[in-house]
């Protein structure tokens, strides 16, 4: 994949953010600029406290930066009013978090249906049909009527992905979506996120620790101490010559080989298009 295949869909410039006051003040981001592109699965890595989640929160419109701008789909999201930003997120943004955060009372269909009805003003049957289609696509045909307590971690995360995909978002943010999963299950989740980028043209930004994910990414963004240390392209091009070693590391990563019943690896795009 090329370094800049097309116009960026998400553009952060000189982003700075600190927390605390006085002597307790700590800098989470110290002037980070970043570009993300539609159709790309971008991976953001770095040690704990490097500012990954802060950057994701700022880019996704959840946390206001102290300084800098974020242009998302051509719009300066931090110049928007709170209501406008909420409307923007409603139309364009999906989220996946490490903790699944599914309603304990609802089955898989209801988790997705809720977003359709509340977020997209869909009718009951329309939302239900779309939720079922997405769950089929995610390989959860036989799990539709299970509640979170009756599902495995991987299944729950797939439901969470389905919930994020209900709105067909152009921007998809995932914060450590695999850290609570074994590698086999985590790989499936990553495949899904990559599929959302490749097949639907979504801009996907995923924060993760696991270097085994690197080969799946179109670009890998490295943060350290709140600063951008480099952007690596696992297909061979690096944003910074001094980080070439990262590419070689990623090329040595163990390729995933997880398996799961009902899993539809590689077919996400086609199915997504049919449900869209």
């Amino acid at each position: 994949m090329a370094m800049s295949p097309q116009k960026s869909s998400l553009e952060g410039r000189d982003l700075r953010r600190s927390f605390g006051q006085g002597s307790m003040r700590s800098t989470a981001l110290a002037g980070v600029s970043i570009d993300l592109y539609p159709g790309q699965f971008s991976l953001m890595m770095g040690p704990s406290g490097s500012g990954k989640s802060t950057l994701l929160a700022i880019l996704s419109g959840l946390l206001r930066p102290d300084h800098g701008t974020v242009h998302s789909l051509g719009q300066n999201i931090w110049a928007m009013s709170e209501r406008q930003a909420e409307g923007f997120r409603l139309r364009h943004v999906g989220f996946i978090f490490q903790g699944y955060n599914l309603f304990g009372a609802f089955n898989a269909v209801q988790q997705l249906e809720l977003v359709g009805r509340w977020g997209m003003n869909m009718g009951y049957w329309e939302a239900r049909k779309k939720a079922r289609n997405i769950l089929d696509m995610l390989g959860l045909s036989k799990k539709k009527h299970l509640r979170p307590a009756e599902m495995s971690g991987g299944e729950k995360q797939r439901v969470a992905i389905g919930r994020a995909l209900m709105k067909e978002p152009e921007l998809l943010f995932a914060d450590e979506p695999t850290s609570a999963l074994d590698w086999g299950t985590g790989e499936q989740v990553i495949e899904l996120l990559r599929g959302a980028a490749r097949e639907r043209g979504a801009t996907v930004l995923c924060v993760a620790h696991d270097s085994r994910i690197i080969p799946f990414a179109d670009q890998v963004i490295h943060l350290e101490d709140g600063q951008l240390k480099g952007v690596v392209y696992p297909d061979g091009k690096s944003g910074r010559p001094d980080r070439e070693d990262e590419r070689s590391h990623s090329s040595k990563s163990v390729l995933p080989g997880g398996e799961d019943e009902g899993w539809n690896k590689g077919k996400l795009g086609g199915r997504l298009n049919r449900t869209a």
């Binding site: 409603l90 139309r91 903790g99 509340w118 977020g119 994020a164």
Partner: peptide, 18 residues
């Protein structure tokens, strides 16, 4: 007890009144 679930919906822009 459902704060985090509501927070996900809020993150996705679903209005608070819902």
């Amino acid at each position: 007890a459902s704060m985090k679930e509501f927070a996900v919906l809020r993150a996705m822009g679903i209005p608070r009144w819902r």
